[in-house]
Design a protein around this nucleic acid. Sequence first.
DNA 1: GTTGACTTCCAAAACGTTTGGGTGTACAGT
DNA 2: ACTGTACACCCAAACGTTTTGGAAGTCAAC
Lengths: 340, 340
Amino acid sequence: MTVVTLKVIAKATGKSITTVSRALNDYDDVSEATKELVRQVAADLGYVPNIFAQRLQKQHTDTIGLILPTFGPRFSDPFFSELLAGVGNRAADLGYDLLVATRAPGEEEVQAYCSMVQGRQVDGFVLVRTRRKDARIECLKKADYPFVAFGRAEEDNDFPYVDEDGVYAMRLVIQHLVSLGHRRIACISPPPDLMFATYRSQGFQDGLAEAGIGAEDLLFRVGDLTQRDGYEQAIVLLDLPSPPTAIVSCNDLMAFGAMSAAQDRGLVVGKDISITGFDDIPMAEYSHPSLTTIHQPIYQIGGMVCEMLIQLIRGEALEKEHILLKPELMVRQSSGLLTV
Amino acid sequence: MTVVTLKVIAKATGKSITTVSRALNDYDDVSEATKELVRQVAADLGYVPNIFAQRLQKQHTDTIGLILPTFGPRFSDPFFSELLAGVGNRAADLGYDLLVATRAPGEEEVQAYCSMVQGRQVDGFVLVRTRRKDARIECLKKADYPFVAFGRAEEDNDFPYVDEDGVYAMRLVIQHLVSLGHRRIACISPPPDLMFATYRSQGFQDGLAEAGIGAEDLLFRVGDLTQRDGYEQAIVLLDLPSPPTAIVSCNDLMAFGAMSAAQDRGLVVGKDISITGFDDIPMAEYSHPSLTTIHQPIYQIGGMVCEMLIQLIRGEALEKEHILLKPELMVRQSSGLLTV
DNA sequence: GTTGACTTCCAAAACGTTTGGGTGTACAGT
DNA sequence: ACTGTACACCCAAACGTTTTGGAAGTCAAC
């Protein structure tokens, strides 16, 4: 099975390589008849262009990069599979490939970015889960590489991103809980170096302040975003001398863990205690009780980020550099009236 | 910022391009002194080889392909994120890139395989979720392309795979439920064209037969593997005139849905009804009640499949072409003694 | 002083494309 | 008969690497 190249088609049609190439690319200095002939023969022979030769020549790769931060071996976050589907499908629609590198966050991850950047393996990057001092952003900006982030960064926000308004979202949650009569509200927050933790914690504090509730350090815990840790942190909260009547988790996975913890303690979630999440992953609707949470259109966000990146790569102007989505509160059964 | 090529280094060191290339690749017909010099200059200039030129020349890509079957827009299966992490991390360890294409199963998916194969974009494929008549397998075999599957195929199993023994696993589940006193056992199975559905259904039937329980068509439902559908199918089962006392789901996600359904009906899972899953995704341990399920080492399987594929690509002999893992039953709280 | 072995280096071809700058023909306008 | 121009085509260079097949130099042995 010898591989079909332009040369083979050239020989078969009696034309030159140049003409074959131009015919296939629909240049207008090739006669219609020749084009037809070339296309026919190419199809018959099953010609497929060698993508590496093309890329070497054209100096761009038609590939976008995405580095998936995999926390630990049992990495399994429905949030990321949905995001990945969003990015991947849109990329395919626009004729781009998706190169995924899985790395644990840290030194090695930044390394991976740099080498993909310098090796020009991809035309641009999708950055997920921005951090406060984000070495990846510095690296990409320094190299003047196109990228779009899902999430903002500290102060200096001078790069294209899509994000949801975490502050506003958390205020919605607190307002909802306060309206149900809750005053002792705990929070399980992500590690503070994650940018979205900042916004969500801020929103939590703001919400409390608006309701005239003082913050209590004991009611604020940091979790690692897994269901397991949501469970652990909730146990700590429930074992306090004066436990909270509501737990606000900064993602759905930890909220599920917290629900299990409460239920293991014999509490009825939505009655004895209210628990809320953030993300609205598909499972949120079908858990028991169903989870009150903030809806993020993850799949669509993936698509938007991908599309912005490709526009950037193509040198087209972005309609909006910064997109901040207004999130929506999904009230379900895990939150309910405070029963005294 | 001009790009650093071998030519630049050659100029800078006063050597030829050949020598620079060979120095960098540690050939032994370059003097130690020259090697040192070249390496030094290359590092100073920040040389990174152009990967496409290399690939064009070497005729292999150091990339493996993985096509993720994304069912619908709200695709979000923790199973796949864990598998992806397993494949991706092992690939990185072995110096390979991972090209991920997300496609909905169907015509277009097969298309994607074919074009990646013919375009020689990847050295080999990881195939996930094999199907009965799997067009992807035919395509890859016909093209004589290296691939390793997670899952077997019908009869003609003549390709390398890793799989778990689904028949055995389901028999374990049934034995467990029978030992708890259950006789009316329902099954929520995946779509039957998925190969693993065959094994798990078979195991289900075998288990019932062993226990001397007759199969009832009404107790056998097909779901689409999502939590939502697990919920729907469980509702149908619970609404039967004579509902089951145990529901065996063929994956964890549907089991979670079924649990919610039972709980919405006011049943206590693990007492009034037993529910089991399959996969043991991380959430299974922290749901409420925790889920009795079959453990699959998904992350490790990803690594194994990846490693086998790379051995295949490198032309090394596989120690074992077919790996069939003996699964383990994790008894947790969602299954309990039948209370009459 | 010729031979051979060894070390160190290099020119040129190759991988499969794309593209800038041609060439040759035909035919119209002057 | 010359110029202009439209058309269909193709040569050759370029992209950045690896590799083949030497060449040039040194040294020792005969």
